Simulated scan of single mutants.
Amino acid sequence: MTIREIARLAGVSPSAVSIAINNGKGISDETRRHILQVVKENNYKVPKTRKSSKRHRFVLVKYLDHGLGVEENQGFITSIVDQIEAECRRYSYDLQMINCNGETAKNTLENIMQNPPEGVILIATEMLEISYKMLDLITVPIVILDNGIKYKNIDTVVMANEHIGYNATDYLYNLGHRDISYFKTSRQMHNCDERYEGYLKRMRELNLPIKPPVLLTASLKGAYHDMKKQLSNGSFKPKGAAVADNDTIAIGAIKAMQEAGYKVPEDVSVIGVDDIPFGAVTMPALTTMRINREALGTLTVEIIRKRIQNPTWPGMHIEVVGELIERGSTRQA
C-alpha cells in the first residue's frame, strides 16, 4: 500500500498523509487523528523518514523523450532552470538536478523517493499522457512545469498556450492577412498542440480557410531541412502569413524560404513564440510572443513553497500569458 492509496481512503491529499505520519505541521488535529486511524486500520508500514537537515532540498527532474522541446529550443528551458536555481539560492534551498527519459523515468522517481526531498519540480515538456500514471510515485509536494497535466489534481506552472496561439493569429489578422498558415512541430508536445488549438479557434471565429499545418522538426536544422523539402516538392508555397509553434521552427523555416528566393515579410509574414535571444538578431528580426522565463521559474518555486506550507489546498494551475514583441518578420498585408 502506498501513501497515495492511504490518501484516497482518508479523503485527503498525499501531502497531508505525509505530514500526519511524520508529525509535521500544516493540518488540523482532527485531520491528523483521522489519517492515523486509516493508517492503523490498513496496517500501513510507515517508510523511513529522511535525515533532518537545516536546509530544504528540492529535486528538479528533466524528462526527455526526443529532446526537441527541452534541449533543442535554443536555451529557453535552460533560462527557466537558471531562474529556479536563483530562487532556490534566495531561500537557501538545495537543488539537485536529474535527467530521465521514458525508459528510466519510473526508476528515477522511485530512487528519488528512497530519500524523499521536501519537493520535486518536474519539467514535463515532452511527457505524454501515457506516462502520467508514474507521477503517483511522488508522495511529496510536486510542481509540473511546462505541461498542464489536464484533469489531474496536481500543481502546474505553464504557458497560456491556447491564449498565445489565439493572439498570434489575431495579430496577423489585424495586419490584414487572411491567408494564415501554421508551422507545427512534427512531434507531439502538449504545449505546441495547445497553441495550434488557439490558432484553430481564432481561424474558425474569423471564418478563414484552414489548411493542414506545415509539419517541421522542432530544431533549427530540422525545420530548415524540412521546409526546403516542402518548398522543392511544391507541398508548401509561402504567401500571406504564418504562425510557428516556436521561434526555433520559425527561424529554420524562414532561412529555407529565403534561400528559395522568398522574402520575409514581403512574401510571407512569420510570427514565432518564446522570444529566444537568437530571434532578435536574425535577418529580419523575428516577431514573436514573448514568454517570461523569469516568471515561470519564480512561480514554480513559489508554488512548491506554498504547497509545503498548505498541503490541503486544492491543486493550483498557473498560466503565464505571452507578450507580443513586434519586429521585422511581419508587416501589413
Rank of each mutant, 00 (worst) to 15 (best):
I80G: 03
Y171S: 05
D29L: 10
R307W: 08
Q188P: 09
Q258T: 13
E72A: 15
T169K: 01
E72F: 14
K40M: 03
E319A: 01
H34S: 08
I254A: 13
V268D: 01
S219P: 02
G328D: 02
L109E: 10
D82C: 07
Q230K: 15
D245E: 13
A241I: 12
K211V: 11
N111P: 05
N246I: 11
I249F: 02
N147W: 10
A168T: 09
G261P: 02
V321E: 08
T217D: 09
R307E: 03
E259N: 04
P311E: 01
G297I: 05
K201H: 12
A160P: 01
P212R: 06
K201A: 14
S92T: 12
V59W: 04
K229A: 11
I6Q: 00
F278E: 12
S232E: 15
F58A: 11
I210G: 09
L137E: 10
T248V: 15
V140Q: 02
T300A: 15
L299C: 04
A244F: 04
E162L: 04
K239T: 14
A260P: 05
I291W: 03
R305T: 14
S181V: 06
K25L: 13
K45I: 13
Q332K: 15
R195L: 01
R90P: 03
S186H: 06
E103I: 12
K133A: 14
L216G: 07
I304F: 05
N23H: 08
N191C: 08
K106D: 14
I138N: 05
L231I: 07
R187L: 14
M189S: 00
K306Q: 15
W313I: 13
G198H: 02
V273I: 14
I249K: 02
K306G: 08
N99S: 10
R57E: 13
M289F: 08
S52I: 11
P212C: 05
E41V: 08
V17G: 02
L109F: 15
K152M: 14
V157C: 06
K255N: 14
I19K: 03
A223K: 00
P117M: 09
A241P: 07
R307N: 07
V273W: 00
G322P: 10
S219E: 05
V17F: 01
L296W: 08
T108F: 06
R331Q: 12
F236T: 08
I149K: 00
F236L: 00
T298R: 13
G148T: 11
G198A: 06
E71H: 09
P265M: 02
G69K: 07
I35N: 00
A295V: 12
R307G: 03
I35Y: 06
I3T: 10
G69R: 07
S232F: 03
N233H: 11
H177M: 00
S186L: 01
Y151I: 11
K228M: 12
V38A: 00
V120Q: 01
S329I: 14
I180Q: 08
M189P: 07
N246Q: 11
